[in-house]
Structure formats: C-alpha cells, structure tokens
Nucleic acid binder design. Structure first.
Lengths: 213, 213
DNA sequence: TAGTCTATCGAACGTTAGTTCGAAAGATGA
DNA sequence: TCATCTTTCGAACTAACGTTCGATAGACTA
C-alpha cells in the first residue's frame, strides 16, 4: 500500500527516449478497447498481452499493476478532455454559446476517443485510494466547468454555483444525457455526432419540443 | 449451454409452498445490494452466502448458476417496473401529463428499489444468450413505452415512432437523465425524489431555463 | 415406521487471474 | 570489446472463484 513513488509514469528516462512512449500509447489504447468492451474487471492482463503481442510478464515493464494501468488511461484521457473544456469556457461568447460548445466538444471527444472515454465514464469506482482521489478531482473540475456555465445561464453567481441545488441537478441531467450515449450510440444507425450535438443542445435549451432548428 | 429447462424458477413445487418464496426474495435482495455496490462480476457467491448466512453450497439450491441469479433479479425487478409503466400510458391525460407520470414513476421506483434497479440498469451485458435476449426484450418494451409518448408530443404517428431518429434520440436523452441519477444521487445531499422528479420534468418540457414552476 | 421431499452443509476440484522473479537478448556508449 | 541499461520472456506462486457432489437433518406422507 505505502510505496515510494506510487504514480511514477513508467516511461524510462522520464520520457527522454522517443521510442518507448508510442509503445505505451499503443498499450493503453489496446487496453482501453478491451476494457471498454468487457469492463475493467473482466479484462485480464493476459488479454491485453495477447492483443499487443507481448508476453504476460512483459506487461509489468509498462505499469505497476492492473489498477495502475486503468489509472494511466483515465488520467491521460480525462486530463486531455478537461484541458480542452476549461479552455473552452474562457473563450468568449454568451453563456448559451459556451454551453453549446461544451456539449459539442464532449461529443466530438466521445467519437475520437470512444474506448478511453467510456472507461473514464464507467470505471472510476474500480480505482481506490490515492488513484481514485486523483481522478475524482478531475471529475470535480469538469463538473464545475459545466456548472459554472449553467449557473451563468440561470443567473446564479459563480461562487454560489457549487452548493446551488438546482444548478447541481440540471448540470447532472446534462451529464446524464452525454454519458448515456455510450449505452446506445451505433455509428451505422445513428446520425453523425454533429447532428447528435445539435439535437442535444436543442433539447437542453428548449426542452423536448425543441426550438426552431 | 443447451439445457433442459434453462429458466425454471427455483421455487420448489412451482411456488405452491409459502415458506420458501420469501427466502428467495431475501436472497435476491441481498444479492442486489452487493451487486449494486460492487458490480456483478466483483460480487462472489461467497459474498452472497456470507450476507445471507447460508453456506456456499447451499446457494445452488436457489439458483442454477451465478448468471441465473442475476437474471432472476433483473426479470423480477424490470418486469414489475415495466408493468407499472405500460399501465400508466393507457391511463388518460394529455401526452405531457403521461410523460410526467412516466418520469415520476421511474424515479419513485428508483427510490423504492434502488439496488435492484441499478443492477438492471448497468448489468444487462453480464447476461448472455437466451437470458440476455429476454431482458433486452423487456428493455425494448420500456423504450417503446416512453418513445410512444414522446412521439405523441412531437406529433409523430405511433407506427412511425420506432424508426424515427429524432424520437429515438430524445427518448434516449430522457433515459440518460433518469439512469445517470444512480451515479450521483445521495439522499442526504439531494432533494426528495418528488422534487427531483419535478425538476427533471421541468427541464424535459421547457429546457434548461425552465418554465414557471 | 419407512420413505420421500425440502433445505442445508462442508469438502473438494479445476480454472483463471494478478503478480513476482531471474534470466537473457538487444541496444548504447566508453 | 566490455559494461550498462532497456526491454522482453517464460515459469512459477498464490489467492480467489464458480461449480459439483455426497451426506444429512428435518418435515411431511403413506
């Protein structure tokens, strides 16, 4: 439990070499694909090894243990999305416009990083202790990012947004719509994500009956 | 895989005796509590045995195997909810009123059967083959139940609802809001479900800014 | 009372999975 | 060439889990 450097990134030489980093990337990507399809606990390291062509023992050169592998995926993926979104709300436009951009960015990221984001969305509870806390912290920042804009639209001062029950609820309703897409989206059957984004924004803004698209 | 009677309900004498059925109920309830908290695959039959005070081997008197246990929970719980909802849409009122009732019923069921419904919501993919199909069928009926009313609100004929892309999306947005509540609802922190239902209905009907509550 | 059905137990088996470890091959640089 | 560092491997260990099975005690019945 208590270790020296619990979260050191296993890229040798602190990432100086440019050969090993892409290999880790491919490893994380293959792991995310497996975990996205079967779930974290049903994905064995032997599965990942077979998928990447490496040996079972060789896996542990890249991560400390299975939970660490999950953490690496989540930190990288969610950190990257969060960076995009926190930047987005600093750019100009009305609250409505910024909320629209947040939703559409999320869905764009959903398409380009489906497996990784699905793992982030559904496997937080598979982390424990310090690793859990680190990712939970990213989630809190993402929530606040969205809640701030929602609060602005409803005329709630920024510093009150966090404890404001109604803002909390409405923000979580939006996250519900966004995150549940993983459960039903089929590229062949459903429209493009652009269209999906427009539809969701319309419903968020104007309700079920929609506005005037 | 191919067995004689794959889905026989393990109540002896076809449920004639009134002693064993409540015992099975308690078993399913305890299982649902464990699976709701840790997930299906992380819940061992040894856990369930310990929770109910029975022995490991004794479990198999009540279900055929672990997947069967999950199936029994889902069939009972989701079947019961579906019955409520299909009845609800036959009762009178405008489409708006019926949609409101559907949402509020779902949330009421969410509160009274939290563990069981959470298992239904997140563990469909843990079933396979025939058992998967049976529960998926219930889900399809539930979807159609909701989609019909949504379609009615948007002026789409009942027989076209199923392939109507927009109806499909908006209905799934609503399910997203409803199902995601499992991920954040804390009785101490959040309002009563009644209030939660009103807020959700308001957002569904009028959008983020809401109507005139 | 003998026999059958209900309900439960404990032990055991086989499999799978996470993790460790020492060896070794390849690359790098003095 | 030699020493060091990076990367990979195969074997092994241990824990946990799903499932099976024969035994058994109690209840009900003929």
């Amino acid at each position: 439990m208590a270790e020296g450097t619990p979260f050191e990134i296993p890229v040798p030489n602190g990432g100086k070499t440019s050969r090993t980093a892409p290999k880790l990337d491919r490893l994380l990507s293959a792991s995310a694909a497996l975990m996205s399809a079967r779930g974290f606990s049903q994905t064995s390291i032997r599965d990942v090894a077979a998928e990447t062509g490496l040996s079972l023992g060789g896996m542990y050169y890249y991560f400390k243990n299975k939970e660490d592998l999950l953490f690496l995926i989540q930190e990288k993926t969610f950190g990257s999305l969060l960076e995009i979104q926190e930047k987005t709300i600093t750019e100009g436009g009305s609250a409505e416009e910024r909320l629209q951009r947040l939703v559409k960015n999320h869905l764009a990221y959903f398409i380009s990083h489906f497996n990784e984001l699905k793992v982030c969305t559904f496997e937080l509870d598979s982390l424990k202790g310090e690793r859990y806390e680190k990712i939970a912290q990213l989630r809190r920042r993402y929530f606040l990012c969205m809640a701030r804009v929602v609060g602005e639209m409803l005329g709630v001062p920024v510093d009150q947004v966090e404890e404001h029950g109604k803002i909390r609820q409405r923000t979580l309703f939006i996250f519900g719509m966004l995150n549940w897409v993983f459960m039903w989206y089929v590229p062949e059957k459903d429209d493009s994500v652009e269209n999906l984004g427009s539809e969701m924004v319309d419903m968020v803004m104007n309700g079920l009956k929609g506005g005037n698209e």
